Amino acid sequence: MTWRMPHEGDPHERTWMAFPAVGPTLGDDPAEQERFYAAWTAVANAVVEFEPVTILVDPAEGTRARRMLAPEIEIVETPVDEFWFRDHGPTFVVDDERPGVLGAVDWIFNGWGAPEWASWEKAAEHARFTAGLVGAEVVTSLLVNEGGGIHVDGEGTVLVTETVQLDPRRNRFADRARVEAELARTIGATKVVWLPRGLTRDYDDFGTNGHVDIVATIPTPGRLLLHAQNDPEHPDFAVTCGLRAILEQETDAAGRAFDIIDLPAPATIRDHEGFVDYSYVNHLVVNGGIIACGFGEEAADARAREILEAAYPGRRAVTVDARQIFAGGGGIHCITQQQPAVATR
Rank of each mutant, 00 (worst) to 15 (best):
V164Q: 01
R178G: 10
D167R: 11
H151N: 11
D153Q: 02
E155W: 14
H151T: 13
N171R: 06
H151F: 11
V152T: 15
L142P: 15
R172D: 14
V139P: 10
V139M: 13
D175R: 07
K191G: 04
T163I: 02
R170V: 01
L159H: 13
V160A: 06
P168V: 07
N145G: 13
V158R: 06
N171D: 07
A177N: 00
H151R: 10
S141D: 13
G149A: 08
I187P: 01
N171T: 06
E180L: 04
L142D: 15
K191M: 03
E162M: 05
L166C: 04
L183I: 04
E182I: 09
P168A: 07
D175W: 09
E162D: 04
N145I: 09
G188M: 04
R170Y: 03
L159R: 09
T190S: 10
V160F: 01
E146V: 13
R178H: 06
A181F: 12
V138H: 05
G149L: 01
G147C: 12
F173T: 15
D175E: 05
N145Q: 14
G149N: 11
G154F: 11
D153S: 01
L142I: 15
V158D: 04
D167K: 06
R169H: 12
L166G: 09
V158Y: 04
R176E: 12
V164R: 01
A174V: 06
V158G: 04
R176A: 12
D153C: 05
L183G: 03
I187R: 01
Q165C: 05
L159Q: 09
E182Q: 14
T140E: 15
A184E: 06
K191N: 05
L143D: 07
T140P: 04
E155F: 12
N171P: 04
G156V: 08
L143W: 11
E155L: 14
E182K: 05
G154A: 08
D167Y: 11
F173L: 15
E155D: 14
L183R: 03
D167I: 09
G149E: 00
E162H: 11
L142H: 15
G149V: 00
V152A: 07
R172H: 15
G149Q: 00
L142M: 14
T157Q: 12
G148I: 07
T190E: 09
R185W: 06
I150V: 14
R178V: 10
E182A: 09
R176F: 08
V144T: 12
T163W: 04
V138M: 03
A181D: 14
K191L: 00
G156K: 03
V160E: 04
L143G: 02
D153L: 12
V144Q: 10
K191Q: 08
E155M: 13
G149Y: 06
I150R: 02
V179F: 08
R185K: 02
A174W: 03
E155H: 14
R172P: 13
Q165G: 00
